[in-house]
């Protein structure tokens, strides 16, 4: 069984950075049977929020898109490298208030074990843009509107995945751990509650 965790990210959103750290911690703890993918997203609301963020927006109007392309290019060397690069970039931009620059981006690429020459070729390539559009398709397919939303799938549960907008470490960890232990647990959760026609034979009160 594989538990897939998708996390939808706006690189310049502090809340996303925290959500990424949460998901990374969960996947490290539960290890093997988990597949994590961070999906980049951009929409009008994100761009609006960015324009309102005085700390970031006066520097570079293309920052939301450029950071996504950097993240996509880093991912061309493996998802793990993409995630680590992204989180390091966010730490510098959002926590340490470092200004975005090519020098910073290359320093982080090297620090996170990327092939820097390949990364330089890829970060403004047609392929990076194409893969961003591919991410946007996933956003649309999974019907995600807010960054830091997560979507979970269990390979043993056929009909449905679960989309969760708000989560914290303890509750999501608990849910994932239980889901890995039993497909039935995930299946039950992925079914719509309280739409079962009355009378429900095994009605439970809790």
């Amino acid at each position: 069984m594989v538990l897939e965790i998708y996390l939808f990210v706006d690189p310049l959103n502090r809340h996303c950075y925290d959500a990424e750290k949460t998901i990374e911690r969960i996947s490290q703890k539960l290890n093997k049977q988990i597949s994590v993918r961070f999906v980049s997203m951009l929409n009008i609301k994100i761009l609006h929020d960015f324009s309102m963020n005085k700390e970031l927006s006066h520097l570079d109007h293309n920052l939301p898109y450029d950071t996504i392309l950097d993240f996509k290019a880093a991912s061309f060397q493996g998802k793990k490298f993409g995630r680590h690069f992204l989180m390091d970039l966010q730490k510098e931009l959002l926590i340490n208030s470092e200004p975005y620059s090519d020098a910073l981006v290359y320093k982080l690429a090297e620090r996170n074990g990327l092939d820097v020459e390949m990364f330089k070729e890829d970060r403004r390539s047609d392929l990076a843009e194409k893969m961003f559009r591919c991410d946007q398709r996933v956003v649309h397919e999974m019907d995600v509107t807010n960054p830091s939303t997560t979507v979970l799938f269990n390979s043993d549960v056929e009909d449905s995945g679960i989309r969760i907008k708000d989560f914290d470490y303890n509750s999501l960890f608990g849910f994932c751990a239980k889901s890995l232990g039993s497909a039935a647990h995930f299946e039950q959760a992925s079914k719509k509650p309280s739409t079962v026609p009355y009378p429900k034979p095994n009605l439970r009160f809790n």
């Binding site: 897939e4 979507v151 959760a189």
Partner: peptide, 25 residues
Amino acid sequence: EEEIRRFLPRSVREAELRELESQIS
């Protein structure tokens, strides 16, 4: 055989963790 099941088409349902927890416990 187990892992290829990831490719079965699926829908996505929205849920809140609190709701999931109370439903399951």
